[in-house]
Simulated assay, not measured.
Amino acid sequence: MRAETVFNVFTYGVFPAWALLVFAPRWKWTQRLVHSVLIPVMLGVAHLGLMLGLNLSNSVPEGASGASLQGAMLLFSDPWVAVLCWIHYLAFDLFAGAWIVRDARRRNIPHLAVAPCVLLTMNFGPTGLLVYLAVRFFMRRTVTLDENETAKAAAPQAHLASG
């Protein structure tokens, strides 16, 4: 199989997950597919398999590394190494997009405010996460990444309601 074919399979293969995050964030299949470990595990297995299948010492040009810009440019000059790195981006961007949707739900942030952030994360990774964090700050005045913070804030209210 050609590197371009593998690239396309993974690139278009994650689009349904992104569509579910944007258009059906509360649907049971979004929960089962996108918010489970299924997709990250599949991407991780593909990444590991490709990494083990590549003979990096033969496919990476001399001087290629992540230690310098020139070295990184050389690293990405091999199509299979570029696909390997692309799967890395796909996995972590989707992970961040799913986290954004879950975090927004925990904090009762309207999905209409979140959907553009998810699309930005799909296309520009960290920029989408940054925009979501800004939206979250302006809507909920919170800067923490502690997921238990919302549970702690809700605990006193739950106690009062049951008492």
Rank of each mutant, 00 (worst) to 15 (best):
A134G: 14
S77W: 01
G71S: 06
M139E: 00
A155E: 14
V114M: 05
R136A: 10
A67K: 15
T121H: 01
R140T: 07
H88F: 03
R107I: 00
P126T: 14
S77Y: 07
S68D: 00
A72F: 14
L129N: 01
T121M: 03
W80Q: 03
L90C: 02
G71D: 09
M73E: 14
P156S: 01
I87M: 05
L90P: 00
P110I: 04
W99A: 08
V143D: 04
N108I: 11
Y132W: 00
L90Y: 02
W86M: 02
A96P: 06
R106W: 13
H88E: 07
M73R: 14
N148Q: 14
A98Y: 07
N108L: 15
D93V: 02
G71P: 05
P79N: 06
A67M: 15
G66R: 11
L74G: 15
T142P: 09
L112P: 01
G97W: 05
P156R: 06
M122R: 01
P116W: 01
R107E: 12
C117V: 08
T150H: 11
L133R: 14
A151C: 04
W80T: 00
G125E: 00
T150W: 15
M122A: 12
D93M: 10
A98W: 04
E149M: 09
T121V: 07
Y89I: 10
A155N: 07
H111M: 10
L130D: 05
P110K: 10
A72N: 12
R102A: 13
A151R: 13
A134H: 09
L94Y: 00
